[in-house]
Amino acid sequence: MTMSEYLLSLDEMKQVDAYLDKGFQVHSVNENLSGMFVEFKRLEEVVSLQILTAEARKYFAAKLLEQSMF
């Protein structure tokens, strides 16, 4: 595997967008050796997403900032 992560990061960013578009809110964020673990919540429904790529983790932080501002 090369360091090329573009496609994977695109895919991860799309997943973030998809949850947010469906009305989920970020509920929890935890980072450890395996990357970033995000829980999205919509009413009582909770889904989790593991974000591996650096670009998507940056992107997610930008989205989190947006959510925190509104």
């Binding site: 509920h27 929890s28 980072e31 932080a61 930008a62 900032l65 925190s68």
Partner: peptide
Amino acid sequence: TIPPMTWNERQSLISNFSR
């Protein structure tokens, strides 16, 4: 395509969501 954010800003933002 995303606005500027420093590591320190990011950490303080994320810390509000660590549960």
